[in-house]
Design a binder for these strands. Structure first.
Lengths: 206, 206
DNA sequence: GCACTCGTTAACCAAATGGTTAAACTATGA
DNA sequence: TCATAGTTTAACCATTTGGTTAACGAGTGC
């Protein structure tokens, strides 16, 4: 009861190790032994803290997804002007991604292989849902007022997310095509923080 | 020796089954038994035709990647004008994707988890490499002539690929965010064939 | 010092899984 | 019809893997 700090540290170490291994190898590719090794503990201790692989995975997954949702929501649901909002969204989103570069692949994979697990656990949380309504309304208004070209809000949002996320998903492919090494690619990603928003705004501006 | 047709059919059935299962569950998620079931054959027959899981996977993977490469190359390396080329590229690429909607996730996953397997086998093939040089030159020329805004060729190409591929990778996520069912999403993807090129051209046009 | 609790470990277990083997089946050509 | 070669299967094997157990250890309160 006293050395709570130590046990908390162990739990944290496990979580970090689990995130690293899951994200790198995917659910079925990840071995409990890998995670134990990574956390430098006995495998049985994993099950002591987190009963099963399933539960451990779900915890890691949910913790990370839930960390992202509110941030995105707060921007997309703000009262900023459209162009500002796009800039903020891109900046915030790319910032988050550069701190969690492997999260997209993790999420996309999990969502593809076990959609039900996600829908059942995340969907019920009201705050889990993205609040896109205001954003959609805003785009329609701007188009009606002739400030931007007519564009389906869905298209615009999909394009924005695509431009932000894909470079993280397709990193190895892009590196291969262009022959970038790690450092070069990191610079490309850094540069995109400036480019992406204006690319989008350019394409809808009248 | 005579009933080659039957054995070819079996082999084909296995390949199709393998592609389906691998693409759906990923390498480590896929079970040889799943593939056997899918192909309606005995598991031992899998090993009779394709010695091991590794070899079967690699074959499926390579066959599919190699099917895509030449198509993309022929467009990107053509002598069309830039805007035409962008339109052709997007049309061809999205067409191919709509015929192989799960391929992107498959490729991205394999490339992320076993990059070496890919680099060693694909990279040596000269035609495996995308021929981006002419395309890059073209963008630089158009920018110099003031026909388009100055944009890094890498950025433009990355953005183009992002806008094409991401909707397939992020399908479940996007479906979830917007609440699309299968049919609606298929329509969205269909619509993008018209939208994406003009979105890109808009964003670089002067 | 002693019992008690929590954290940790080595050893173990059962199920799953990739892969093998030997036998059976089928068509063919001599 | 019979030997042969290719195809298919059921049964089997070894290893991997998630998960359990029982015991040990260290700190705590009495």
């Amino acid at each position: 009861m006293k050395l709570k700090k130590i046990s908390a540290t162990t739990e944290e170490r496990i979580k970090e190790a689990a995130k690293k291994v899951f994200v790198q190898k995917g659910y079925s590719g990840a071995r409990m032994q890998d995670i134990a090794n990574e956390a430098k503990i006995n495998k049985a201790l994993l099950h002591y803290y987190f009963r099963s692989k399933d539960q451990l995975f779900e915890l890691i997954f949910m913790e990370n997804v839930q960390k992202m949702m509110p941030k995105i929501n707060s921007i997309i649901d703000s009262d900023d002007k459209l162009f500002d909002k796009i800039e903020n969204f891109v900046a915030e989103y790319l910032g988050m991604l550069s701190e969690n570069p492997f999260l997209p692949l993790f999420v996309v994979n999990e969502l593809s292989s076990h959609p039900e697990r996600f829908f059942q656990k995340i969907a019920p949380l009201a705050n889990g849902n993205l609040k896109v309504n205001k954003f959609i309304q805003q785009i329609q208004d701007e188009a009606a007022r002739g400030k931007i070209i007519p564009i389906s809000p869905v298209t615009l949002l999909m394009n924005t997310i695509s431009l932000c996320v894909f470079p993280y998903l397709g990193k190895p492919m892009i590196q291969f095509v262009f022959g970038f090494d790690e450092l070069q690619y990191r610079m490309i990603l850094e540069q995109r923080k400036k480019e992406v928003a204006s690319f989008i705004i350019n394409s809808i501006k009248k």
